[in-house]
Amino acid sequence: MNESPFALQKVAYWLYEYNDLYIEILNLSKNPCNICVSNEAEGLPFDCLEEPDYCTKQYSYFTDFYKGVEYGVDVQRYDLECKIALDELEECKNLSDQKNWLIKYFNIGISKVAIFSYDHLDYSVKKGEVVHPHFGNSPVGEFGVCIDRKYYENLIQFIKVFEELFYEKKVYPEKLEKIRKQMEKIVIPMIPIPKID
């Protein structure tokens, strides 16, 4: 997948071409079979074993793939904003300026692009190999779309700098502490599981 990345425009055109099919499948997916409804009620993934004609959960591979690829095209729109942010950061000469920069671009860094590098860049490639973002990967890695890294260069650099300033250098410590406290509230304690002999 990483050897021959697609151009962003080609992927966007594919999304345009298959948008009607995607919407049609989403509309049809409002009628899952009894097993899918039961699995959903129990919090289990859709695994339609009956596969009746009216159950369209079997098409979730396509809809999940489409949503993943669509994210790849959508997140790229932040590349220009990240370029502007990086240019502004060059003017930040002291910690106070860097903190103000983090405050200004905090929403983008945490809410908009934070998961991009973790979920879409494959760091398992050989050292020195160019890593292109992957989108719409199937659960077992059978297929997905690789889009040329050049469309995301500023976004990737922004994430790197943002994480370094926020998490490593702790330039905005009060916000980091607030996030830590929020995370402590939502972490569910582990329930010991009895050993079965």
Rank of each mutant, 00 (worst) to 15 (best):
E81Y: 08
N107I: 06
A85S: 04
G109N: 04
Y78P: 03
Y123F: 15
E88Q: 14
K93P: 05
Y78S: 09
S96T: 13
Y66I: 05
Y66M: 07
S124R: 08
V125S: 11
K67M: 13
G72I: 04
D79Q: 03
L95M: 13
L95C: 10
V69H: 08
T63I: 07
F116Y: 04
E70Q: 15
E91T: 15
Q76D: 07
E81S: 13
I103D: 08
F65W: 14
Y105L: 03
Y66K: 05
L102A: 07
I115L: 11
V113N: 01
L86F: 06
I110E: 05
S117N: 06
F106H: 07
F116G: 03
R77F: 14
A114Y: 07
Q98G: 00
L95Q: 10
F106Q: 01
V125W: 08
I115T: 10
N107S: 12
K93W: 14
V73M: 06
N94T: 12
K112S: 14
K83P: 00
V69L: 11
L86M: 13
L121W: 02
D79N: 15
H120V: 07
L95R: 11
D122N: 15
D64C: 14
F106W: 10
K99A: 05
V69W: 03
Y71F: 15
F65L: 11
Y59Q: 04
T63F: 08
D97M: 08
L86Y: 03
R77Q: 15
Q98Y: 04
E81W: 04
W101Y: 11
S60C: 08
I115Q: 10
N100H: 09
N100K: 09
D97V: 02
D97H: 11
S117I: 07
L86A: 05
A114G: 06
I108A: 04
D119S: 12
K83I: 02
Y59E: 03
I110G: 02
K83G: 10
I115A: 14
V113R: 01
S124F: 15
Y78A: 09
E90F: 04
V69C: 11
D122F: 05
Y123P: 00
Y105V: 00
V125Y: 12
Q76W: 09
K104I: 08
I115G: 12
E88K: 11
D79L: 05
K112T: 04
L121H: 03
D87K: 03
I115N: 10
I84C: 02
N100I: 00
S124G: 13
N94Q: 13
V75M: 08
C92S: 14
R77E: 15
Y59V: 01
I110D: 01
V75T: 08
Y71K: 07
E91A: 13
Y61S: 06
A85M: 05
V113D: 01
L95V: 09
S96V: 12
D87G: 06
I103H: 06
E70P: 02
D64Y: 15
Q76T: 14
Y118S: 09
Q98F: 00
G109E: 01
N94L: 10
Y61A: 07
F116Q: 00
K99D: 01
C92K: 03
Q98M: 12
K112A: 13
N100D: 12
C82M: 06
Y78M: 10
D79V: 00
